[in-house]
Amino acid sequence: MGLLTILTKMKQKERELRLLMLGLDNAGKTTILKKFNGEDVSTISPTLGFNIKTLEHKGFKLNIWDVGGQKSLRSYWRNYFESTDGLVWVVDSADRLRLQDCKDELSALLREERLAGATLLVFANKQDLPGSLSKEAIREALALDELKSHHWCIIGCSAITGENLLAGMDWLLDDIGARIFTAD
């Protein structure tokens, strides 16, 4: 029995996953987290620091970390990388002006060694806004098709209406589950 098998067994027993939710400020990370948890989303203020929520879904215990996206907080993102199973990158689909910013920050993250094993889910958020870009446009803008280092998926969603949030999370859990829990 190799070390990997032991580790896998341990993880399997816990069925506990660590998800890290990042993105530029105003992308809707906290709103997604609160909506997913069934909380009120009308009074959310820009995140000064981070939120963590633990919730159960599909038999997994999920620890979701939502870290503020303001420029001055981005340098702290690295403190949350350790043992992350899934990375959720949230994009404000209506924020055309900062798509380049968004791409740069994401590609910097994907070069991080400590996130090398993590599955990437991109939420093209705010699809409910009339001026928002489609998920295909976001996929092109972030050059996701060139991404070979991580398992990834992009899903158009709306944190306000809750549309597709569950679909995204299900894909993420399936992908991580297939990687971690079926190794033996």
Partner: peptide, 22 residues
């Protein structure tokens, strides 16, 4: 300048959309 002129690095299609919607 974040106006309607496309940024060189961004895909053309996206910025074309930006011009029409802003």
């Amino acid at each position: 300048p974040p106006d309607v002129a496309p940024t060189p690095a961004g895909p053309h299609e996206v910025d074309g959309g930006a011009a029409s919607d802003l």
